[in-house]
Design a binder for these strands. Structure first.
Lengths: 344, 344
DNA sequence: TTGTACGCGTTATCAT
DNA sequence: ATGATAACGCGTACAA
């Protein structure tokens, strides 16, 4: 550990610590050359800890996500990282879908970071008071808590995305449309369910209870949910799956059961994936720019920080987009009808 | 900003700051109850910055990776995070494959973190001096630099994995076996190429120059490389692709060109992927436990830290495994020969 | 057990 | 432009 301090440099050059400090801050001092050399020779590095104590800021911004191995969150993090700038860094907290870890980590963030960008696990954290008295600037990304209005946020138009997805299936002639949703306690879980229901309602299709499964955004959850749907007396002809991991799980289930997509069942997912084109068949999805969400969140945070925390909360919304590939088709019934017509 | 300090708490309770400090450190003091209440009432949070300055440690460990959106590195990070323990956190640096960013970030780490776990961009950093003068404990993960022996590391048996992959193709009857490799300046790039060549040599197959393409571990790189291979006069009948992203790219290329796998060409990748089973056909790969690599690296770092940095470097190696799925088959020639035999 | 007082490495203020 | 010095918030040796 290089334990050489500013005092050592000062002594070595023969000036006071104040002069060295000023040199480091960019002021013009007399012995610039000698100081420069001394710093290199002694291999002096300013202590970040001391600077933090003095300045009250750390130059570190935390980003809290439920699961970094989810490509969606990885992209958010990457976006945030890309926008963090030269003199700041990011502290990553992976809560692993554990509320306990989330709370614990949050409390550890004090004094370590200047602000936190977070995708909270659920909307009902510890009630409105928690984040209000949290004391650290917060920007929510992808998800908010109950009192999310009080803080800046960068969300997706979840309801719109879900609506588009469901509408797309309806327009293909599907009527028995199921949804594998996320936890209704989360922002995307709730809003996407809303969008699904509103689309059905708009087309006068009654939403059947057994066609909506509240799952958990995990691959295993998607697998289980799809299995349940297949066991229905009247299985759906199309399924809207509310996130990428569950979509993978659902596809696995279909593959294991030998159900062919889109011949026997149509699938549309939420969130694009690197490999969505490569699966069989290529996956039709609702896509959005996760990287952009991350960078916007960071921009908001930095703006807030540089304004001395005096900015009112801003709410940004990233758009969604239907990416048509091959996992959706006309329902079987329609196909049969057509065939029949042709046969006669 | 919670600007309430230990002094405020002390005043509020009517004791000295030392007593509060002792209470916080777990010593038994007289007014525990009153102190507890005061802390909650005032919403006091110890300043991490002040503690850092006092103790000389930050409780933060940096993890430096080239690309967090690569599922492999995401898993490494997750593994490291899972092993970090209660009282430490991780600082993520995503170098985005930029050497400049890597260096810059590294220099910023000083004093902010207690140690750094890193997957360096290339083996030829600035030579041994760079990391030695860095002054921070280092554990290499997945990749090392030239003087990597001096620091602990957690690698994969790259050569073995590549050897197995190539051998597997040979055992299926392939002779025209190409490899899309990573940069030879990186540990995995070099070792995997070694394994490929050794396997060919062992079977007496001469390695043709045009069958080895040094690419860059990116999806685009894999795409381009595969295109080049397809344009060869005598295209290979099988390709070993040295990482996951390039495999995705290669598959895209094959799909765009209408080349069917495994009928026309066999593909084996390095690193498993969530969706490897779902692509068409399911992907055969060399797999390893990336999460384990991450957690082992963290374990090594913590061990080093808790021994006061007095431990000699340890080198750990995570095993590889062949996961047979459906992307490899007998070469076409063999198929034809067989057909001929049957026909006659 | 408790309180006093000093030091951790920097930066900012105030004279000079 | 420079130097001495007081903070920043906390931990701890020392004395009580």
């Amino acid at each position: 550990m290089s334990t050489v301090t500013i005092t050592d440099v000062a002594k070595h050059v023969g000036v006071s610590v104040a002069t060295i400090s000023r040199y480091l801050s960019g002021f013009t001092v007399r012995n610039e050359e000698k100081i420069r050399e001394a710093i290199i020779e002694l291999n002096y590095r300013p202590s970040a800890a001391a600077r933090n104590l003095k300045s009250g800021r750390t130059g570190i911004i935390a980003i809290v996500v439920p699961d970094i191995t989810n490509p969606f969150f990885a992209s958010i993090v990457e976006g945030a990282e890309s926008a963090v700038g030269e003199d700041r860094m990011i502290l990553l907290v992976n809560t692993g879908d554990s509320r306990e870890r989330e709370e614990k980590a949050l409390s550890q963030l004090f004094g370590r970071v200047d602000g936190v960008i977070m995708a909270p696990l659920t909307e009902d954290e510890q009630g409105p008071s928690f984040f209000s008295q949290f004391g650290l600037p917060i920007v929510f990304v992808d998800r908010v808590t109950k009192d999310g209005e009080k803080f800046s946020s960068v969300l997706t138009d979840n309801a719109k995305g879900a609506h588009i997805a469901t509408d797309y299936l309806i327009s293909q002639g599907h009527r028995k449309i199921a949804m594998i949703g996320g936890p209704l306690s989360t922002t995307p879980g709730k809003r996407r369910a809303d969008g699904y229901r509103s689309a059905l309602a708009k087309s006068g299709i009654s939403s059947q209870v057994e066609y909506f499964i509240e799952s958990d955004f995990s691959e295993a959850g998607g697998y289980a949910a799809m299995c349940r749907l297949l066991e229905e007396e009247a299985p759906p002809t199309a399924v809207f799956v509310a996130n990428n991991l569950m979509t993978i799980g659902a596809l696995h289930a279909l593959r294991d059961r030998g159900v062919s997509v889109p011949q026997e069942i149509s699938i549309i997912g939420f969130d694009d994936l690197e490999f969505a084109e490569l699966v069989n068949p290529p996956l039709t999805v609702i896509a959005r720019d996760a990287r952009l969400q991350g960078s916007q969140a960071m921009d908001l945070m930095i703006k807030h920080l540089e304004n001395g925390g005096a900015t009112p909360p801003e709410h940004s919304m990233v758009d969604v987009q239907l990416v048509e590939r091959g996992s959706c088709a006309l329902p079987r019934e329609s196909q049969k009808i057509r065939s029949n017509k042709i046969d006669h």
